[in-house]
Computed example of a mutant assay.
Amino acid sequence: MHASLRRVALGTAALSLVAVSAACGSADEADDKDSKGKKDGSLTIGLLLPENQTARYERFDKPLMEKKIKELAGDDTKILYSNAKQEASLQQQQADTMITKKVDALIVDAVDAKSISSSVKKADDRGIPVVAYDRLAEGPIKAYTSVDNPRVGKIQATSLLKALDEKGVKGKPQVVMMNGSVTDPNAKMYKDGAHSVLDGKVKVGKEYDTKEWKPENANANMKGALSALGKNNVDGVYSANDGMAGGIITALKGAGFSGSDIPPVTGQDAELNAVQRVLAGEQYMSVYKPYVPETSAAAEFAVALARGEKLDKIATSKTDSESEKGVPSKIVTPLPLTQDDVKKYVGKAGFFSQKEICTAKFQDACDKAGIK
Rank of each mutant, 00 (worst) to 15 (best):
Q354D: 08
T359D: 15
G230A: 13
A9D: 02
Q94A: 09
K38T: 03
D124Q: 05
V20A: 14
L17N: 03
S26C: 15
E29K: 09
R151N: 11
V278Y: 07
K368A: 12
K121M: 02
E138N: 13
L337K: 03
D75Y: 05
S317I: 08
V202A: 01
E29M: 04
V147N: 12
V175Q: 11
S286H: 08
K172F: 04
P328G: 01
I249E: 14
V120A: 02
S317A: 15
T359F: 08
K36Y: 13
D32P: 01
K313N: 14
A9V: 10
D112Q: 08
A9H: 03
N221S: 02
D40A: 14
D31K: 11
L48A: 09
K102C: 00
G256A: 09
T319Q: 10
V278H: 10
P264I: 03
L252I: 09
P150T: 14
F301L: 05
M1V: 13
G350R: 07
Q94S: 07
N241W: 12
A360W: 03
D124T: 05
A110G: 12
A19M: 11
S296T: 15
Q354H: 14
I249D: 15
K289N: 08
D261L: 09
Q268S: 14
D112R: 06
K38W: 12
D184Y: 04
K162G: 13
L252T: 12
A251W: 11
D75L: 06
L43E: 00
Q53S: 14
A255Q: 01
L64T: 04
Q354L: 01
L106W: 12
T12C: 15
F362P: 00
A245L: 06
A163L: 12
L305H: 08
R135H: 07
I107D: 04
K330T: 13
L305R: 10
D209R: 02
I79R: 12
T333I: 09
A298R: 01
A143S: 15
K62C: 05
A143W: 12
V131C: 01
L164I: 06
V303M: 00
K201L: 02
V197S: 05
D124F: 08
G246T: 03
G256W: 10
T44W: 04
D104E: 10
V130N: 03
E282H: 05
I371A: 08
P334V: 12
P293Y: 03
G246P: 01
V237Q: 05
K170F: 02
E66I: 15
Q93D: 15
E138A: 06
S82K: 11
K85H: 11
V346L: 11
V18K: 05
R135W: 03
T97L: 07
A299I: 13
A9K: 06
G350T: 03
L49R: 11
N149G: 03
T295V: 01
Q354V: 06
V111N: 09
V169W: 13
I128M: 02
L272P: 00
M1K: 13
S286M: 10
G74R: 10
K62Q: 15
K310Y: 00
R56E: 04
T97G: 04
K188F: 08
Q91I: 01
T333Q: 11
A218Y: 09
A245P: 04
A225R: 07
D312C: 11
V234H: 09
G139D: 07
K343I: 08
D320W: 04
M222F: 14
G46A: 06
S239L: 03
A95C: 00
D209N: 15
